[in-house]
Amino acid sequence: MKTSSDALVNIVIPNWNGKKFLGPCLDSLQSQTFSDFVVTVVDNGSVDNSLELLNNNYSWVRSISFAENRGFSAAVNAGIGQNVYPYVFLLNNDTELDENCLEQLISIAEQYSDYSFFSPKMLNYFHRDILDGAGDGFLRGGVGYRLGTMEADAAIYSTMRHVFGACAGAALYRKEFFDTIGLFDNDFFAYLEDVDINLRANFKGQKCLYVPAAAVYHIGSATSGSKINALTIRLSTRNTFFVLLKNYPLSLFFKYFSQLFLYQFMWFCFVVKKRQFIPYIHGVVQAVRSAHAMRRKHRLLYPEKLRKPISDLDKILKTSEIEVLDSIMRRRRALGKGNGCFNLYKRFFT
């Protein structure tokens, strides 16, 4: 790795009380077959001596520190803002990289100049034959989905292909990507901020390529401590509305009314089942309070003279949703579960 301004890649790692994860993550970077990079850890007010670990054992790592937790978006934006390099690689602290991961990603990025961001193959940290994600898709109800998640790694996920977007837990971006799309939205704080940026990218003609030869091993939900808790429910609920309010023109709200209603109803049933009704209500209230601000952002992001035709947006979103549904149905078949409801949904809505 390098410490000078002539490196090819800036690896940005957000961290909040992740000392126990940082060591293995940084060690895997030291073992890369590709070394033309610098590393920037952005610390969100950790109180677990994360910064001491960096100072004592990883002096080659640059650090930016906040006095308090400003969230994922603010952290990665601070790292991206330091960028004078051709590429930015965003990486969660609870990951390890296969030794040739960066070499594979950069090699493909240099070959495919018409793509502006790239998704590696993400695998379960503890069960490395199980996928954590093979590129990101999008459901028209307003949420992203990591394609292949919880599926056994298989041939279908071993082919490089165009995908809707990338999980910001491990993704390579050209510097020009952020010049065109803008940074992550600090108002999201955490969760779905990459769904928002994937939507913006697609609506502005940017393309993402899935690179299966680049492997990242991911623990998942290590910072929040659980996939289902009051924080994740509140932010996920609120940010789903943020994604829609910020990116959908009014015509898509009308066109997708049935899909939007169905998704929100299923999400409501889920949070009630998990006894998270109060955090859900807090998320809805926060979304309502910020609705005007999000619509203002929509008008700034998509001035009328530059908006894509609705037919183009519909095609992009429908194609991605079909890919997501196929992935979910594959996983359910492997578990011996039925797909009757999903088949009905595909028949009526896709």
Rank of each mutant, 00 (worst) to 15 (best):
M1Q: 04
K2G: 06
A7F: 04
I11M: 01
V12N: 04
V12G: 02
I13A: 08
W16E: 11
N17E: 06
L22R: 04
S28A: 00
L29I: 03
S31T: 04
F34D: 06
S35G: 11
S35N: 12
F37A: 07
F37C: 06
V41M: 01
V42G: 08
D43M: 02
N44K: 03
G45N: 05
V47Q: 15
V47K: 15
V47D: 12
V47A: 13
D48H: 04
L51E: 03
L53T: 07
L54T: 04
L54V: 10
W60L: 09
W60F: 07
W60P: 05
V61R: 00
V61M: 04
N69G: 05
R70N: 10
G79A: 04
G81V: 06
Y85G: 01
F89T: 09
N93K: 01
T95Y: 05
L97D: 02
L97I: 01
E99T: 13
C101R: 00
L105C: 07
A109V: 08
E110G: 12
Y115H: 01
F117H: 09
F117P: 05
F118V: 04
F118L: 01
K121W: 06
N124C: 09
N124F: 08
I130E: 07
G133V: 08
A134H: 05
D136R: 15
G137K: 02
L139K: 11
G142P: 00
G144S: 08
T149F: 14
M150N: 14
M150T: 14
A152N: 14
D153N: 11
R161Y: 09
H162R: 14
H162V: 15
V163P: 09
F164H: 01
G165L: 08
R174G: 06
K175T: 11
F178I: 06
I181H: 02
L183M: 08
F184Q: 07
F184I: 09
D187M: 12
Y191L: 11
L192A: 00
D196Q: 10
L199E: 01
A201M: 06
K204Q: 05
G205P: 08
Q206D: 00
Y210T: 00
A213D: 07
A214E: 03
V216F: 00
H218K: 09
G220S: 09
A222E: 08
S226R: 14
S226K: 13
S226M: 13
K227G: 11
N229H: 02
T232L: 10
N239L: 07
F241E: 08
N247K: 09
N247C: 02
Y248M: 06
L250H: 11
S258A: 14
Q259G: 10
F270L: 15
K273I: 13
Q276H: 03
F277S: 02
P279W: 01
P279S: 07
Q286N: 11
A291F: 00
A291P: 01
R296A: 11
K297V: 11
L306E: 15
K308P: 00
D312Y: 10
D314M: 04
K315L: 12
K315D: 10
L317M: 06
L317K: 05
K318L: 12
E321D: 08
R330A: 13
A334K: 13
L335E: 11
G336D: 05
K337V: 10
K337L: 15
N339F: 07
C341D: 12
N343R: 14
R347L: 15
